[in-house]
Structure formats: C-alpha cells, structure tokens
Simulated scan of single mutants.
Amino acid sequence: MSTAAATAVPGILSAEFVQETLALTRRLFIQLQRRPSTLVAGVVQPLIWLVLFGALFQNVPQGLFGESTNYGQFLCAGIIVFTAFSGALNAGLPVMFDREFGFLNRLLVAPLASRFSIVLASALFITTLSLIQVGAIASLGVLLGTGLPNLAGIGVVLATVLILVFGVTALSLGLTFALPGHIELLAVIFVINLPLLFASTALVPLSFMPRWLQWIASLNPLSLAIEPIRYVYLHPDWRLSDVVMVAPWGSLSLGAALLILLAVALGMSLLIQPLLRRRLA
C-alpha cells in the first residue's frame, strides 16, 4: 500500500484524525473567545496569589525558606505547578457539559476517524492554556525579583508542566466518564484541589512540616513537580543528579523526580484507557 493510501485510511494515524482533532480543538478556543473571562480569571488568579503571598511573607528572615533570596522566589515554582494542576483538573468539564447537553452523543454517532480525537482535543486545549498561564506567572515573577532559570532550566520547567498536565488531564477525563454529572465532578475537584496544595511543598519547605505531613508531601505528585522547578530557578549550574528534596524516606534527585512524575502520568493515562474505550465505543 502506498503512503498516500495509508494516510487516507481512517484511523489514529490518518489525515482525517488530525483534521477532526484540530477542528474540535478550534471549537474549544471559539468557546473561550466567546467567554474570555475564563482565560482572564485563569491568568489573574495565580498572579494575585503570587503578589499577595509574596507580600505577606516578604519580611521573613533570609534563609528561612532555603536558598531563596525572598519568599516570592520560593513561591513562584509552587504557583506555576498548582496553576497547571488546577487547569488540568478542570479539563473534563467541557466534555462533561458536552455529554450533558447531548453534543457528545452527536460526535459519537459521527463518522470520526477515531473517537480519541475528542480526548486529544481537550488535552491540547488545556495544555495551551497552561502554557499561557505559566508564561504570565514567570513574567510577573521576573518583575517581583524571582528571576528566570537558564535556557536548559526553562526546558525543565516546560517539560515538568507538560508531564503534570498530561497526567492530571487523563485523570480529569477519566472522572468525566466515571461520574454521573458535572455537580459530582466539581465536588471531586473541590475536594482534591486545596488539600493537595497544602499537602505539598508549594507554600513551605518540608522542614516546616510535622513528620507525618512530610511523608505525605514528599509523595505528593505536586511536590515532585515543584522541587525540580524550584531547583533550576535557584541553581543555574544544575544537573540531573543533583538532590532536589530530602524526604523522610531518602534523598530525591532532579532526574529521579521527573522520572517518577512521568511514571505517575503514564500510569494515570493507562488506567483510564479501558474506561475511555468503553464509554467512547
């Protein structure tokens, strides 16, 4: 079979799949264009957190938060990760509303090359929004004196955010098809969101926490994303073998943190595959 013929066959590697994925993604951006308050709120809220929390702790003694010269520098990594996490956790809401309003049923009976394009479109949309938010937070951070990592460090920041968004988006989409409606999905989001924030190293280092919370925070995926980003912000000459977190169970290097985070993201993705196949069949 020729290459042209192969790409014409409907399926996940076909030109039709790419076209319908882009069309569904464009539909989400059109919805965003009609309701820009969603994007504005998603960008402004983390900036407010960064300004207010940074001002709240600006007079703490230097060195109290590790090697950071000010609390804003310490906080920036936590705000970046938590914002990306919150956005990805909401990834299932557009699909849930499509499901409740009947649009998803119309898609399921349409001659799509692959129904996976519905899931991929949501993932692309959320990833783009997360990168916009990260760019806004990093830009404000520069104005507040947090600085920027070097070029390789920026690559680590982007890679960490993308891995986290990939895994949490998979979790959100799985919840979308497992739960009966958007009320239940919002309830789960509210229950997960803030506890994971406060049980991570986003706001304070591990040394500030009681022993039992240190165990939870060191195993929290948010901490596994925060610590590599925080480290590359503070160390221009970083290496993958450098220790970024000293947990109760042992030391964790930058490379190991990223590998564990990637394994968690892939695990979430594989976990929801049977559910997605069943619901999109």
Rank of each mutant, 00 (worst) to 15 (best):
173 L>G: 02
178 A>Q: 08
177 F>T: 06
140 L>N: 11
131 L>G: 03
143 L>D: 04
134 V>C: 08
147 G>R: 12
160 T>A: 10
131 L>P: 01
158 L>I: 15
187 A>C: 00
184 E>V: 14
134 V>W: 04
176 T>Y: 01
145 G>W: 05
121 A>V: 10
198 F>H: 09
100 E>Y: 01
166 F>C: 10
172 S>D: 05
181 G>D: 15
138 A>Y: 01
151 L>N: 08
127 T>V: 08
149 P>V: 13
116 F>V: 11
156 V>P: 01
108 L>R: 05
139 S>R: 06
198 F>K: 10
98 D>F: 03
152 A>D: 05
194 L>I: 15
157 V>D: 04
109 V>A: 10
110 A>V: 06
179 L>Q: 07
174 G>V: 08
143 L>Q: 05
187 A>I: 09
164 L>R: 12
172 S>G: 14
173 L>P: 02
162 L>G: 05
137 I>A: 09
143 L>S: 11
156 V>G: 11
190 F>H: 07
108 L>N: 07
188 V>W: 05
168 V>K: 07
144 L>R: 12
196 L>Q: 12
130 S>G: 06
178 A>D: 00
102 G>P: 02
182 H>N: 14
102 G>T: 11
133 Q>Y: 06
193 N>V: 04
175 L>T: 04
127 T>S: 13
162 L>H: 06
